[in-house]
Nucleic acid binder design. Structure first.
Lengths: 203, 203, 203, 203
DNA sequence: GATGAATGAGAATTCATTCAT
DNA sequence: GATGAATGAATTCTCATTCAT
């Protein structure tokens, strides 16, 4: 997302400015992820980016402004994820491998953007609701997944809800992995998730 | 802190005091759930409880103090949930029914305590006395569940991780239901969750 | 000072009420002496007197009201001290003995009222200035003393100032003794003070 | 305390910052001296320094923090005073002149730091890091003085106590002079004090 | 481009005093 | 007479944002 970001400064930046802006974005991601939106202090971000308050407001209009830029990045990642879903996932070795690969990609993107998404969910609670930027990312993901598979008739499950549940599961387990609450090998996590999903929705 | 701990569980309270304290707890739950810990204002809580700032500090040492009391309640709910797990869940109609009932109970308790747990996860009140109260509630739940079932050998899944994934799924989907992001019948949600779980871990 | 105290409740008190009021006065003296006027909490006083907030305001109109009652007691003590000064202190064994006895009495009264006087001086700083109740107690003491002795012509000392200096000395040293900053036998302190005074002002 | 200690002696300050900090110190001295620690409002200090609340906390962590800085200054003054005592004070014209000069210096330093010392004594900020900074300044002064003179055998006075009494006298009389309770020429006050001291401890 | 300094609205907390039982 | 509960004005402190250099 290097395109001109609304809400921030539009001006063309020279290389030095580019670097400063990037440092602030990285710092923001780090601090927001660690503390959440409200507890994060501009002071913390600025310190991590080793720059000054004044400089911060040279690149972003507000704390929220910086956060929005991060959310856009994350939303971009998520739409990449939707686009990369195989059009049709069959219940055979190939389908399962594709599913597994996709969950792997989910994990990769999540390690970059997951923190932002989480913080964003929290901030939303407070009513700040960043105008629909990516309002129901997990929902969209679930819907996309649902459209690619044939869900077994078993119990007359609602396909939309089942996929939402599974996406929710992925999100949350990856989150545990990211925060260190779940100490486990990345591949094992991905395997487990892919296996449960396959078992649940591939007929 | 010169005054004798006005604290939480201190002092025998008269009926009137009891009621006020309860009103504050309810109000706290409501406001924290809606706004998160940092965005919640003591002012909001006090308004919802229709009492005054001064009164608030008569019953709780601080905003954090009230929150701690809520966390303790929630942790209690969760341990009830662990205790109510059937000792052995078989892959037959009875086992599935028991599992379904238990997920139902999860949903019920979650509708009461889920908000607190979520806020607590967000709040990064780390290190303080609160850490540890119920540090890894979901983890304990997952471990308990894992010990009650025989997980199929299929993919050589790590049982602990699989159950954690499934518990995470429950938590998150119930959360969507609670906040209204997922508009669906309570029973359908519970059915879906129980079904996925059964499918994944009952051999 | 058991006479009806202005600022407080005038009513005739039954024995039980008398006792409660006395307990509050004692508690007030203790807490004010220890913490000073502003840092003293009504809560502390009430706790020491083992009674309740409500009761406090049954006997005194305000925190300041209780303090005023204490100041009146102390002012009474000081005027006793003035009255007990020998009319004429000669530079002979008798005069010195009388002076020594008087300093002893100063010390005794100070152990009772000194704390109040000190707190009163502090509170005065803050502009609360309890309308001239005993505005310049030490000054009056000094003036009285000056009028009883013949100060040696030595250096052309200002008698008023010299006696004020000596009274100030007494007050401060007794204070050190009272707070425990000066650990010494009561009699030794009194001896030292009497000796320095005699030496300075008895011609 | 999430922000990196804005603290006192931290950060190299630019000239402008230096000036602001100095203004706050001056204002603090003024307000504390006038009202005492507890009655002094940060608001008052800030107003006198003609700056804002926010700025105050840029230079000091708290009201107490500013006060500590003042106490350190005052303690410094007092140790200067100890160091400047003549090594040996004889009972001759030279000795008396030296003593008189020293009392004069006492008076000068007291006019700067006396208020702080007094407030500090009042404040009962006991136990905290401040205790000890200059815990017994007057005591040290007295001990130093005692070691420089030969006290007459007269009454078998305890030299340490006698000098403490005299230092206490100085402190208190200078205080009266400072607050205007004693309206008198500075030199006369110093003369009187020096004379009483000489008379009491020079054999 | 960058930065240290300044600001002030807003938040948490305290505590003297009043009220209802 | 006594007391627990309630109150809200006053106070300290925080922090996103703006300003001057």
């Amino acid at each position: 997302m290097t395109t001109a970001t609304p809400g921030d400064t539009e001006r063309r930046l020279r290389p030095r400015g580019q670097r400063t802006r990037a440092r602030l974005l990285d710092a923001g991601l780090e601090v927001f992820t660690q503390k959440g939106f409200h507890a994060a202090r501009v002071d913390d971000i600025v310190k991590v980016a080793s720059t000054s308050h004044g400089t911060f407001y040279l690149y972003f209009t507000s704390k929220e402004g910086l956060f929005e830029a991060l959310v856009e990045e994350a939303a971009g990642d998520m739409s990449v994820l939707i686009d990369s879903l195989p059009t049709r996932i069959r219940n055979d070795d190939l389908g399962r491998a594709a599913l597994r690969a996709w969950v792997g990609q989910f994990a990769d993107l999540y390690s970059r953007s997951g923190g932002t998404l989480r913080v964003w969910a929290e901030a939303e609670l407070s009513g700040d609701r960043m105008a629909g930027i990516g309002d129901d990312l997990m929902g969209s993901l679930a819907a996309a997944l649902a459209s690619r598979v044939t869900i077994p008739r078993r119990t007359g499950l609602d396909p939309a809800m089942a996929t939402l549940a599974l996406i929710a599961m992925c999100e949350r387990l990856l989150y545990y992995g990211m925060t260190g609450q779940l100490k486990a090998d990345h591949d094992v996590i991905v395997d487990t998730l892919a296996d449960i999903i396959a078992d649940a929705i591939l007929s």
